[in-house]
Amino acid sequence: MNFFIYIKNRTIAVLAVFAMSVALYATLYVAGVDTFVIWYCICLIVIVALVGLIADYIHRRAFYRELSQNLTAMSEHAFLAPSMSAIPATYEERLFHEALVAMSKSMMDRLAESKTASREYREYIEMWVHEIKTPISAAHLIAQNNPDAATDAMDVQLSKVESLVEQALFYARGTALDRDFSIRPVSLEKVVRVSLRTNARALIDAHVTPRLEHLACSVRTDPKWLSFIVSQLLINAAKYRREDLPLGTSFVTVSAVQKEVSTGTRVTELIVADNGIGIPEQDLSRVFDKAFTGENGRRYAKSTGIGLYLVHQLCTKMGLSISVTSQVGAGTTFTITFRESMLDLLDA
C-alpha cells in the first residue's frame, strides 16, 4: 500500500482538516486577527495533521506489506496467509486479522471435509471395481464354456466392460499415486506383452496386427501404471483403424529407442504407432484434454474423452512426458519419454 492509496482511504480525515482550517480562518478573520497569524495557525494545523497521517501510514504499512507479500508468495494457498502474518498492533488491524483468520479456518475445514469425502469416494470406487471383477470373470468363463455366436458376442462386450471398469479404477487412483505406486527397473518388453495379452481380443476383432521392435531395454517406472497407459494406446489403435485397408494390413507398432542425450542422462522413448485414420490437425493440441472427443470420436466411435486424458495425467505424475504426431489417413504416433540420470541407473 503506497501513501497515495492511504490518503485516498483517509478522505474523511483530510476533509475534516480542510473544513476545520476554513472555519478557523473565518472565525479569526471576523475577530480581527492579523492575516499572517491566521495563515500561520492554519499551516501549523495542516503540518501537524500531515505528520500524524505519515506516522500512522508508517505504522500500518508494515502490517499490510507483510500480508500482501504472504498473499503473493503463497499464491494458490493464499487462505493460509493470515497464519503467517505478524500480530496486528491497532484495533482495526486486529479486527481485520481476526476476520481473515476466521475465513482461513473455515476454508481449511471445508478442504478437510472435501478431502475426506474424496478419499471415501475413491475407496468406494476401488472396492466396487474389485467386487465387479468377480462377476465379469465368471461371465467370461460362462461364455468360453458355452461357445456359440451369442456368447461370443457377449464375451466381446464383457471385454469392453472390463476395460471401462479398469479405466474407472485408474481414474480413481490417479489422485493418490502414493497409495499404489512403486518405481523400479522394468522391462519394456514384458510390460508391452502384458498389455497385448490384456487387449488381444480388441486387436483381433479389429484385425490390427501388433508389431514389437527393439523392446529389449529397461526403464525405471511403475509397471502396472505403464501397462495401463500402453493398453489405452493399443485400444485407440484398434478403435480408430482404417476400414478401407485390406485385411491383415492394419498394424500397431510398439518400439523403443534408447540414447544418451547428455553426460549422465539417458533418454528412452517408447513409441506406439499405428496406420489408422489419424487425428485432424485442429484436434492434435487438445487430444489430452479431459472429455475432448474430437472429430474422430464423433464420427467413427463412441468416445468419452477420458482415455488419453488419463494417459497424460499418469505420465505427468510419474515424471514422464508424452507427445503425439499424426496425419489424417496415414496414422498416429505416440511417444512416451523416460529420462533417467546415471545416479538412478546405479541405484537400480
Rank of each mutant, 00 (worst) to 15 (best):
residue 105 K to A: 11
residue 313 Q to D: 14
residue 339 R to P: 00
residue 69 Q to C: 11
residue 315 C to I: 05
residue 72 T to K: 07
residue 157 Q to F: 13
residue 219 V to M: 04
residue 169 L to P: 00
residue 5 I to V: 14
residue 271 I to Q: 05
residue 108 M to R: 14
residue 154 M to E: 08
residue 17 V to K: 05
residue 263 T to P: 09
residue 340 E to N: 06
residue 307 G to K: 00
residue 127 M to F: 15
residue 323 S to P: 06
residue 260 E to A: 08
residue 231 S to T: 02
residue 308 L to N: 02
residue 62 A to W: 15
residue 171 Y to L: 01
residue 46 V to F: 13
residue 179 R to T: 10
residue 69 Q to V: 09
residue 22 V to R: 08
residue 184 R to T: 04
residue 63 F to R: 01
residue 137 S to L: 15
residue 262 S to V: 06
residue 64 Y to T: 00
residue 53 L to Y: 12
residue 125 I to V: 15
residue 174 G to F: 05
residue 231 S to H: 03
residue 292 F to C: 04
residue 70 N to W: 04
residue 328 V to A: 02
residue 204 I to C: 03
residue 264 G to Y: 14
residue 202 A to T: 04
residue 180 D to W: 07
residue 64 Y to Q: 01
residue 311 V to C: 09
residue 102 A to F: 14
residue 333 T to Y: 08
residue 220 R to N: 11
residue 217 C to Y: 04
residue 51 V to T: 12
residue 250 S to L: 02
residue 278 G to C: 08
residue 247 L to T: 06
residue 291 A to L: 10
residue 231 S to F: 08
residue 322 I to L: 06
residue 269 E to R: 02
residue 2 N to G: 10
residue 185 P to Q: 00
residue 236 N to L: 01
residue 35 T to S: 13
residue 324 V to S: 03
residue 40 Y to V: 00
residue 321 S to H: 11
residue 97 H to P: 03
residue 216 A to R: 03
residue 322 I to C: 06
residue 268 T to I: 04
residue 44 L to I: 07
residue 217 C to K: 00
residue 197 R to K: 07
residue 130 H to E: 15
residue 333 T to G: 02
residue 29 Y to C: 08
residue 163 S to H: 09
residue 306 I to D: 10
residue 102 A to N: 07
residue 192 V to T: 02
residue 112 A to D: 14
residue 160 K to Y: 11
residue 325 T to Y: 10
residue 151 T to I: 07
residue 112 A to Q: 10
residue 298 R to N: 13
residue 138 A to M: 13
residue 342 M to V: 11
residue 158 L to G: 05
residue 273 A to V: 02
residue 78 A to G: 09
residue 338 F to Y: 07
residue 198 T to N: 04
residue 170 F to K: 00
residue 344 D to C: 12
residue 102 A to Y: 10
residue 69 Q to R: 12
residue 149 A to E: 09
residue 36 F to R: 01
residue 29 Y to G: 07
residue 344 D to R: 14
residue 290 K to H: 13
residue 158 L to N: 01
residue 190 K to E: 10
residue 133 K to P: 01
residue 307 G to T: 03
residue 32 G to C: 11
residue 217 C to L: 03
residue 337 T to W: 11
residue 27 T to W: 11
residue 14 V to N: 08
residue 332 T to D: 08
